[in-house]
Design a binder for these strands. Structure first.
Lengths: 225, 225
DNA sequence: TGCGAAACTTAAAACAATATTAAATTGCCG
DNA sequence: CGGCAATTTAATATTGTTTTAAGTTTCGCA
């Protein structure tokens, strides 16, 4: 789940980014309205968090411009004051919700889930589901009717990506990008090693799905026959 | 147990703070509605005592804003007027109880306990229970069928948080927030040190539960197998 | 069927997070 | 001020995770 955070206060941005990452989102940060508009317009995000008071272009204008372009990504506005006018202005222009500063992480977290759920992006409360199994995004625990098991960080990242796009073959490069990031000059067989780890845990759990490999391309989830 | 007192009359504030401290609560005092909102919104308090008549922002508005933010911390309103309208207004907006001045400390004390008990934070008579163990909130004593032992302030805060949400993994940041507050730039391994202290006391007591660590996330209580 | 490339498994080494312990510091109460 | 308990710091030990590396198996193709 990819989130764009448009917020010029560096400190707040860092804190939010950290919290969102912990909640299981992939976060990109930009620091002014103009960048916000450019990045958001790509349509690659599942959610946009948009500050109102920013240099170059304020949040309302970014919002209007995005909606004029028919971008339908959910947008939550972050406003400095609980000003009723701001709220109305934002919602009128097509924001999905607004959160006024100061806010607790729990509040933001709840509103994000509410918005994503409304838009059908989330299966249920911070969990991804596939074939009777569910993956908890906060505790890294994979559960099936037969039991549950904790995953390590790398195992989790890989499985999460496959849970997000269960019908597709996840390309090896994409998986490596997700779990190890950009700079990984990948010489070793690390990915295969982790797939092995995961399969061992899946069979140990008696899961009703497996990880199939597609030679030369990558991996895919498949229900057991 | 951490309490936020929002009260602009300095003298009353000091007196209440002293009494609450003596009663075993950790008290933070702020003196106007705006600060009250900021502090309360962090979610770090177990109870908020909120005066109605205050500079900058009155208690009802603070209350409304907090509830809009989905903050579920119990709130008791303090007001000079024993006006039925005020009472209704407060309760409608999500206050948990209402104490009108002048009030005796015993009355306030009783209402605080009642509110906390209602919220399921207290099992009975100021105690939290988990797996045959009970934690006394006024004396910081942890008891099991095998015996009892006193906890220090920090040990107590940490264990109490885990007793309140026994099924969940308590995130390290949340635990640090509860026991050390907001501003702690945490460099050392203090949390781990205290978990070690607690585990030593638990095993010394022969408790039927343990503190499990969830690597990269936090800690959780678990019954011994 | 047999060869080479790709994928799999396993064990051990390197690394990172957490646990433990002891010593140093703080802050309170007499 | 001095002593005591609580807390913090710091150094070391332990445990869990990730990476490396080597040997094995599977797959597609000639």
């Amino acid at each position: 789940m990819r989130v764009l955070l448009v917020e010029d206060e560096k400190e707040l941005s860092r804190a939010l980014s950290k919290m969102l990452t912990k909640d299981g989102y992939d976060v990109d940060c930009v620091f002014d309205g103009a960048d916000g508009l450019n990045f958001a317009a790509t349509g690659m995000y599942d959610l946009i968090l948009l500050d109102v008071m920013m240099p170059k272009m304020n949040g309302f204008d970014v919002l209007s411009e995005l909606r004029r372009k028919k971008l339908d990504t959910p947008i939550i506005m972050l406003t400095a004051l609980s000003d009723e006018n701001d709220k109305v202005l934002g919602l009128d222009r097509g924001a999905d919700d607004y959160v006024s500063k100061p806010f607790s992480f729990n509040e933001l977290s709840a509103r994000i889930r509410a918005v994503l759920r409304r838009r059908g992006k989330l299966v249920s409360d911070n969990k991804l589901e596939y074939a009777e199994a569910s993956l908890d995004l906060t505790t890294y625990v994979l559960s099936t009717p037969q039991g549950e098991i904790g995953l390590t960080a790398k195992e989790f990242e890989l499985l999460r990506y496959m849970f997000e796009y269960p019908k597709f073959v996840a390309a090896k490069e994409d998986l490596i990008l997700k779990a190890w990031g950009l700079n990984s000059e990948f010489e070793s067989n690390n990915l295969e090693v982790y797939m092995s780890f995961l399969r061992k845990k899946l069979s140990h759990l008696g899961a009703s799905f497996t990880i199939e490999s597609v030679r030369g391309v990558g991996y895919r989830l498949a229900a057991k026959s």
